[in-house]
Amino acid sequence: MFDFERFRPGELIGARDFDLSEQALQDWLALFPDDRDGDLMPPGMMAAVSIRAYSDILSPRPPGNVHAAQEYRLLRRPRQGAQLTTRVLCAEKEIRKDRRWVTFDSETTDRESNEIAFTGRMIVIWAA
């Protein structure tokens, strides 16, 4: 279980791969058809990539966590067929007003070009 005590600010927690397959793109567009933009990944799909990595790496988590804030920096959109790797690290943690706040940073890289496609910052009120 990933509890609050386990996090070390600055520590890499893990990395996960995501293939931006035609199927992955079509699954997204089935819900958000207006997002179609050729073979380029819709910006909203950053969430699918980063949350998948976060959920898979930080498992199991205590029930009752609250997603308080989110940031993304979209640098270059991957194209269909891109193989992405997302690294997730603990950036900060603090106890404020009796709540446990944890900040996670993520960085998603296109493995072919080795360039950063986008970064994310997720702030969570951790339950335990």
Binding site: D34, D37, L40, P42, P43, A69, Q70, E71, R73, R77
Partner: peptide
């Protein structure tokens, strides 16, 4: 994207609170 076209899909920093 609807308002800015491609400029709304590229090199954007989005910060939100829920």
């Amino acid at each position: 994207a609807r308002s800015l076209g491609q400029a709304g899909r590229e090199r954007i920093e989005l910060k939100v609170r829920f």
